[in-house]
C-alpha cells in the first residue's frame, strides 16, 4: 500500500471505511476507458462535490478514487462544520475576553 498523507487517509477511511487488507492502489489517470468493478460485499456510499452533485460508489477502490479527487460530504455537512468551527472559536474568544472584561471593568461599574 502506498504511503499517503494522514489527512487524505483519514478522509478516505472516514467516507469509505477501513482499507481492505489486500488493497492495491492502481494509477488510472492515464486510462480514460477504465471501468470500476462493483464489489458485491461493499455497501454503496454516496459522495458529493462542492456543487451538491452526488455519485454513488460501489467499491472501496472507486470510493477512495473519488474522495482523493475532492468528492466528500454533503454540502450541508460542510456548511454545518464551518458554522460549528466558527461558533467554537466565538465561544472560546467570548470566555477569554469576558473573563478579562469582568476582571478589568466590573469594579468600575461599566459592565
Amino acid at each position: 500500500m502506498n504511503k499517503k498523507p494522514n489527512k487524505v487517509l483519514d478522509n478516505v477511511e472516514g467516507f469509505c471505511g477501513p482499507y481492505p487488507s489486500d488493497f492495491i492502489d492502481i494509477d488510472i489517470s492515464n486510462d480514460p476507458s477504465f471501468i470500476f468493478q462493483n464489489d458485491t460485499e461493499y455497501d454503496a456510499v454516496t459522495l458529493y462535490d462542492s456543487d451538491g452533485n452526488s455519485v454513488s460508489v460501489n467499491s472501496f477502490f472507486e470510493c477512495q478514487h473519488y474522495v482523493k479527487g475532492g468528492w466528500d460530504a454533503i454540502p450541508d455537512q460542510i456548511n454545518e462544520s464551518f458554522f460549528h468551527n466558527s461558533l467554537f472559536v466565538f465561544s472560546l474568544l467570548s470566555i477569554f475576553i469576558g473573563y478579562i472584561a469582568i476582571k478589568k471593568f466590573f469594579l468600575r461599574g461599566i459592565i
Binding site: 460549528h84 467570548s94 473573563y99
Partner: peptide, 18 residues
C-alpha cells in the same frame, strides 16, 4: 462534536453565572 457542545455550554454557563 461533543467537545463543541461542551465549549458552547461552558461559554453560556460562564456568562449566565456572572
Amino acid at each position: 462534536h461533543l467537545f463543541y457542545v461542551f465549549t458552547y455550554i461552558l461559554c453560556i454557563s460562564f456568562f449566565v453565572t456572572y
